[in-house]
């Protein structure tokens, strides 16, 4: 599966579950974003038939959580929850700490 170039704001969906994400921060370049080990597709694209989740992936992607790589250079927001863990070029993405509230609003 080829890598894709993404812009901030781009939406992706899982090919194997209900998961949907939006790219919040993403440096220029091409990436392979997977959910459950299978490349994600554009939100309005047709998911490829017959794909199935990695048998070893028991993870879940949680609604509203931010997912980042180790250096926090890449960030995705989960806009729809579902089965499968997220990974970028084969490296798992982890949940980012919740934002602190401002001291006054």
């Amino acid at each position: 599966m080829s890598k894709v170039a993404l812009k901030a704001g781009a939406r992706l969906k899982s090919a194997v579950s209900d998961v949907q994400v939006m790219a919040i921060k993403i440096p220029a370049g091409e990436y392979e974003i997977t959910c459950g080990g299978v490349p994600m597709v554009g939100a309005s694209d047709e998911a490829p038939a017959g794909a199935s989740m990695d048998a070893g992936d028991s993870g879940e992607t949680l609604m509203g959580k931010r997912y980042v790589d180790e250096g926090e250079t890449v960030e995705f927001l989960c806009t729809k929850a579902g089965a499968g863990s997220l990974a970028l070029d084969g490296k798992p993405l982890d949940v980012k700490q919740a934002k602190q509230l401002p001291s006054s609003d």
Partner: peptide, 23 residues
């Protein structure tokens, strides 16, 4: 638009899908 935190500003490129915003 209430942008009290730097993290909120960092969302602007994704929010408006605009390359004129740096975050």
């Amino acid at each position: 638009v209430n942008l009290a935190r730097d993290e909120d500003w960092a969302m602007l490129p994704a929010w408006l899908e605009s390359e004129t915003l740096s975050g």
